[in-house]
């Protein structure tokens, strides 16, 4: 029996990117919500709720980039130049917000205010940049052979801006629902209000992005059975569970916010993201550089993929194991738990 290594690796990279979005998403969302906190003490609590885990969350982004380099070098070498400016923008923004975790506590009055702003601004810009990368990816990349052959601003269109704004709403929803889980008192009340607004915005923008995505490339429309202005139900029906999962997720979010029930609303938001993620992936799969290079054409040599699969088989369960353990260790309400200080 021979393994379909490129397919397995496509699944691994897709999982890494999804885990990145789900985990660093609430980190970034909390950063975007920073200016709306009522007091410096609330901001401290918000930051403390993610301080032990943000670094691990961001490591999934390194696995996404490093994994793409190692598993699909031709996708990596075509996508990165195509998305040069938003990728660099994301990296710079992540630097500013990343160092803010430490710098904010060492700054005096002006320094602290600056790094508070840098954390919020960096989080927002990193999210927008990720949205531009995502939008630029979905709308397609101009290739000549296996190399990027487009212009420096191909990624900047009304569609990509729409996706970027949608991602901000989504990450804010993740951040607010995470805060409902991890905080209590006034901050939790505020987080519930943020979650209501973000849930409404996410639902609306996800719907608009979904429609816009149908229009951005004929291949996606065809995949969803949208041909000549009408839906072909035989193509659409098998895919309906995907948006349904999103709707169920929204219902769970609403339920979770109303009852302020632990991580329920965060779990609902994760369902919404899962639905959106799979829904978008359906549109471009099997392309890994839409719409000119599929994942097989982009894949690394079989012996490299095979070696790495052995490594991942041994290491990834361990990584997931201790990641879960760290989250379990830091469970419970921040500030309400005397052991935290």
């Amino acid at each position: 029996m021979s393994l379909d290594l490129p397919l397995i690796w496509a699944a691994i990279i897709a999982t890494a990117v999804l885990l990145y979005v789900l985990l660093d998403g609430f980190d970034l969302g909390i950063g975007i919500l920073f200016p709306f906190a009522a007091s410096p003490a609330e901001r401290d609590t918000m930051m403390d709720s993610i301080a032990p885990v943000w670094d691990g969350n961001e490591t999934w982004l390194v696995l996404g980039g490093g994994g793409l380099f190692a598993a699909f070098p031709f996708a990596y070498s075509a996508l990165m130049p195509a998305l040069y400016l938003p990728v660099i923008l994301m990296l710079l923004a992540l630097i500013l917000r990343g160092v803010a975790f430490e710098f904010r506590h060492h700054g005096r009055a002006r320094g602290k205010a600056f790094w508070t702003g840098a954390f919020a601004g960096g989080s927002l810009v990193a999210t927008l940049a990720q949205g531009l990368v995502l939008g630029g990816f979905i709308q397609g990349v101009t290739l000549k052979g296996r190399d990027f052959a487009g212009g420096p601003f191909d990624w900047l269109t009304p569609y990509t801006l729409l996706v970027a704004v949608g991602l901000v709403a989504g990450y804010v929803l993740l951040g607010a629902t995470y805060l409902i889980w991890r905080t209590s008192g006034d901050l939790q009340v505020r987080a519930r209000r943020w979650a209501w607004i973000a849930a409404a915005a996410t639902a609306g923008l996800l719907a608009i992005v979904s429609v816009a995505t149908l229009l951005v490339h004929p291949r996606i429309a065809e995949r969803w059975g949208f041909v000549d202005g009408a839906f072909d139900l035989s193509a659409l029906f098998p895919l309906l569970p995907i948006p349904l999962v999103g709707l169920v997720g929204l219902a769970v979010v609403v339920l979770g916010i109303r009852r302020a029930h632990h991580a329920t609303s965060l779990g609902g938001a994760y369902l919404v993201f899962l639905s959106g993620y799979i829904g978008l992936a359906i549109g471009f799969f099997p392309y890994i550089v839409p719409y000119g290079m599929d994942f097989r054409a982009a894949a690394n040599a079989d012996n490299a993929l095979g070696l790495m699969l052995v490594g991942v088989g041994i290491l990834l369960p361990a990584v997931l194991g201790y990641t879960v353990w760290v989250y379990w260790l830091f469970r419970g309400k921040v500030g309400g738990d005397a052991g935290y200080h």
Binding site: A51, P52, V53, D55, G56, E58, T59, V62, L63, G66, G67, F69, A70, A71, M308, G311, V312, L315, L316, V319, Y322, T323, V326, F330
Partner: peptide, 16 residues
């Protein structure tokens, strides 16, 4: 790839 899997996750998680 092995650097990320063997080192970065280990450092990041246990740093917390």
């Amino acid at each position: 790839a092995f650097e990320v899997l063997t080192a970065f996750f280990l450092e990041a998680s246990f740093l917390g």
